[in-house]
Write a protein that binds this DNA or RNA. Structure first.
Ligand SMILES: [Zn+2]
Ligand SMILES: [Zn+2]
Ligand SMILES: [Zn+2]
Ligand SMILES: [Zn+2]
Lengths: 135, 135
DNA sequence: AACACTGTGTAATAATATAACGTTAATATA
DNA sequence: TATATTAACGTTATATTATTACACAGTGTT
């Protein structure tokens, strides 16, 4: 089967946890996920972390490193799952995945002083979202 | 006193912890720092975290979010401390702060779909360092 | 069958980070 | 000087995030 995340067959636990994250309007933390799926039989942190690891690996979700939280990928162009960019509101904590061809091209082609290129990256922008700017 | 980190006067605890991180060839984790400064009278996690928070705030160190670790800033142009970029070797875990005028200019001027600009960002590139590439 | 691979369930524990409290030192300003 | 304010400190306890270890089940391959 292809590894492109739109078609990867999830296991039961993976599907339960993905559905929860996918429905959530905001990034979810692991133990909040655990609390929410206990009624579905997922009882232990490890069950959650294992599913999260896999979902990250196949690009269905991303980890917001500065928040230790997870969001579903809604960027059909980021199937590689290893080149991600987000904007984070420092007031309301709203997180949005950025899908900018220009940005991803710039970063994918970026070379450091030694001429090294890096195919994987994670970029987190911080500021105020539209709503919070107006307040 | 200026807030520019090259001249900010550190307290005793801050200085002890900064010196340790500054000497380290690799990013240091909080509890590793704690272990290393216990002989100097810093006994509790909170003492470490308070110093780390302050040192990050004034730009003397940066947190590598994907590793929960801290490195000293060696980039004289990043006095703002809120616009950081690093390369991380996935094999040997070597971390290097990237100081590229082009990159920081590009990111500082980046606008999302709504035209929002973000003054703060953190970018982590992943790949293999020169040494590890040759192996 | 034997093997490799992936996922599961469970318990225990490790690693990272903060809350709450009272005290002390440095700084500002009246 | 006095006194108000702020920042840092020390300590204990606790919260939050993540992994180790072990036994087992399903699936596909040889
Ligand atoms: Zn994505
Ligand atoms: Zn907001
Ligand atoms: Zn720096
Ligand atoms: Zn390396």
């Amino acid at each position: 089967m292809s590894k492109m995340h739109k078609e990867y067959a999830l296991t039961k636990n993976q599907q339960i946890i993905f559905d929860l994250i996918d429905k959530s309007p905001e990034p979810m933390k692991a133990y909040s996920i655990l609390f929410n799926v206990q009624k579905k039989g997922i009882k232990a942190p490890l069950q959650v972390y294992r599913a999260l690891d896999k979902l990250v690996e196949i690009g269905k979700i991303h980890k917001i490193e500065s928040r230790n939280a997870f969001i579903a990928c809604h960027n059909s162009s980021c199937q590689v799952a290893k080149a991600t960019a987000f904007s984070i509101c420092e007031i309301c904590e709203k997180v949005t995945e950025i899908s900018s061809a220009g940005l991803s091209k710039y970063l994918a082609n970026f070379k450091d002083k030694d001429g090294m290129k890096y195919s994987k990256y994670n970029l987190e922008f911080f500021g105020l979202c539209k709503k919070c700017t107006l307040k």
